[in-house]
Write a protein that binds this DNA or RNA. Structure first.
Length: 267
DNA sequence: ATGGTCGCGAGGCGA
């Protein structure tokens, strides 16, 4: 079985690319982030025409997550339990469309779009950290309740766990940028402490290996990227991983998402 | 040359 995650940065703008990619890659499951649409604008036919069931959680032009599967799509869950809400500047808190889960051929897949954080002192940063903490609390419980549980936490984590996961760590620290701060890295490491592991890095060692390149500043041609898209697997699922790769080719050319798809192969 | 881009949706926000 082949499972993948991809922040597509608008599914409608990327429909042709996503369809070509699914056919080319032959993925069984695709966890999608940033669909940037509501259900009434969702390209359902794209998936149905290619043999995939799909579940979507999105209600505006912001965020939006989905799971497409051709090996079953059961027990769909939109938001995880106690997922934090956010109300900007004291406005009424809303539940953002950042998490959707489904069971696909025995694997509990979560498509996750972790809050960006925006800036170290921004109100979005404590939201990001709390969002991750509560996800981790849930995830730890899932494998505590069932050590054989096969769980894949897939998506755009908006964290670069290692210095080598950005092209120039000094640039990030000197400019007090997010994604590399101690609290963000600790929030990521907490999943590892809970028993989850990054099953892609062993098959795609750095440095210089990234999943995201900013559209601005010619970041892609200059090979200035970030590794921020991850699949964290429960122990039972990690044992099944036979390979993984980052589809850097998909970042090339006109009409590319700023993120590359990441593929995990299971026995 | 110290910027450089996208997407959504119709001006500015988010990344």
């Amino acid at each position: 079985m082949k499972i993948a995650t991809w922040n597509v940065n608008s599914l409608r703008a990327r429909a042709d690319r996503v369809e070509d990619w699914l056919r080319r890659t032959d993925a069984d499951v695709l966890a999608i982030q940033e669909t940037k649409c509501k259900d009434e604008n969702f390209p359902w036919e794209l998936f149905e025409n290619n043999g995939y069931e799909v579940a979507h959680f999105g209600f505006s032009q912001w965020n939006g997550v989905a799971i497409a599967s051709r090996v079953g799509l059961d027990d769909v869950e939109r938001t995880f339990p106690d997922q934090p809400t956010f109300g900007k500047g004291g406005k009424d808190p809303v539940q953002e469309a950042r998490a959707i889960g489904a069971t696909c051929n025995g694997v509990r897949i979560w498509s996750l779009y972790v809050p960006n954080g925006r800036a170290l002192q921004d109100e979005h940063m404590p939201y990001k950290l709390e969002w991750l903490r509560r996800l981790k609390e849930n995830a730890a419980g899932w494998i505590a309740d069932d050590p054989q549980a096969q769980v894949a936490l897939m998506g755009d984590w908006n964290i670069a766990p290692l210095d080598e996961d950005v092209w120039d760590i000094d640039y990030f620290h000197d400019n007090e940028l997010t994604h590399v701060s101690g609290p963000e890295r600790a929030a990521f490491e907490a999943f590892v402490q809970a028993g989850f592991s990054d099953v892609v890095r062993p098959h795609t060692p750095g440095p210089g290996v990234y999943t995201y390149w900013d559209y601005t500043k010619l970041r892609f041609p200059k090979k200035e990227g970030m590794r921020i898209d991850f699949t964290l697997a429960s122990p039972a699922l990690a044992q099944r991983v036979t390979g993984a790769w980052i589809d850097r080719e998909e970042r090339k050319g006109k009409g590319a998402s700023d993120h590359a798809p990441v593929v995990v192969e299971l026995d």
